[in-house]
Write a protein that binds this DNA or RNA. Structure first.
Length: 213
DNA sequence: ATACCGATTGGCT
DNA sequence: GCCAATCGGTATC
C-alpha cells in the first residue's frame, strides 16, 4: 500500500475553496469503512449566502465559528445527515461539505449499511455518504485532528492515495443551493473528479419567491 | 406558540 | 422527470 498520512490542523486551516479541491482523492475513515472522496463543496462563512453561517452564529452552526479540523454535522429534510469539515481561520465559519466518494475499505460493512443499494450509490450524495460511514449528529464537534484513538467514533482524514491527476479536477455550481448562493458564476464552489461514477447528479436550487438581502 | 423551509433521497409516472 | 416524506432550526408574532 502507498504511504498514507493523517492530515493535520494546518491542512484544514486554509480557505474552504482551497481545502475542498485538495480533499478530492483524500481518504475518510469511520466505523470500519474508508471512502476516497470524489466530490466536495466549499461554503465560505458569513459572506456566503449559500452557507448556514450566512445569518451569523446560532446554536446549530456554532462549531463552524470555531477552529478548523472539527466536524459540523447537520440534519435536513427530516431524514438525512450531512457532514462538513470546518476550515479556515478560527471564527471564519468556513466549511467543506463531503458530497461523494468511493468505498476503498470495509466493503462488507458498507454493504450491510446500504441493503439493496448498488456499490456506486453507497456514497453518491451527502446523505448517502454519512449513512455508509455511520456518521450523524453525535459526531458534530468532533476533532478529526485529535480523534479519541481506538474509539468507535474516530474520524480520520488521510492524504490522497494514490495522488490525484490535477487534470481531472472539475468545478461548477453547488447542488440544491437556493438563491444567490446557487449562482455558479459567483460561487463555482462544487468540486469533483471527472469520470467518477460516485459523483452525484447536479440539481439546481428551488426558486425562492422572495429573496431577502 | 406557530409557520415556513431546507447544502436530500427514493419511489413512481 | 416529478413529487412526497419528515422534522429540527430559525424567524416571526
Amino acid at each position: 500500500m502507498a504511504q498514507r498520512s493523517a492530515l493535520g490542523r494546518g491542512f484544514f486551516a486554509r480557505p474552504a475553496t482551497v481545502v475542498a479541491q485538495e480533499l478530492l482523492g483524500c481518504l475518510v475513515s469511520h466505523a470500519g469503512v474508508t471512502v476516497r472522496l470524489t466530490e466536495t463543496e466549499a461554503y465560505a462563512g458569513e459572506r456566503d449566502p449559500g452557507s448556514h453561517a450566512f445569518r451569523g452564529r446560532t446554536p446549530r452552526t456554532a462549531v463552524m465559528f470555531g477552529p478548523a479540523g472539527f466536524l459540523y454535522v447537520y440534519f435536513t429534510y427530516g431524514n438525512h445527515w450531512c457532514v462538513n469539515l470546518v476550515t479556515g481561520s478560527d471564527g471564519a465559519a468556513e466549511a467543506v461539505l463531503l458530497r461523494g466518494g468511493a468505498v476503498v475499505e470495509g466493503h462488507d460493512l458498507a454493504a450491510a449499511r446500504r441493503p439493496g443499494v448498488r456499490e456506486r450509490d453507497w456514497c453518491r450524495g451527502p446523505g448517502r455518504l454519512t449513512r455508509t460511514l455511520d456518521l450523524d449528529g453525535r459526531h458534530t464537534g468532533l476533532d478529526v485532528c485529535r480523534p479519541p484513538l481506538g474509539e468507535p467514533a474516530d474520524v480520520l482524514v488521510w492524504s490522497p492515495d494514490p495522488a490525484v491527476d490535477p487534470a481531472r479536477l472539475r468545478a461548477g455550481p453547488r447542488v440544491g443551493v437556493s438563491g444567490p448562493g446557487g449562482d455558479g458564476e459567483a460561487f463555482p464552489w462544487r468540486f469533483w473528479l471527472a469520470d467518477e461514477p460516485t459523483v452525484s447528479a447536479y440539481r439546481p436550487g428551488t426558486v425562492r419567491r422572495r429573496s431577502r438581502t
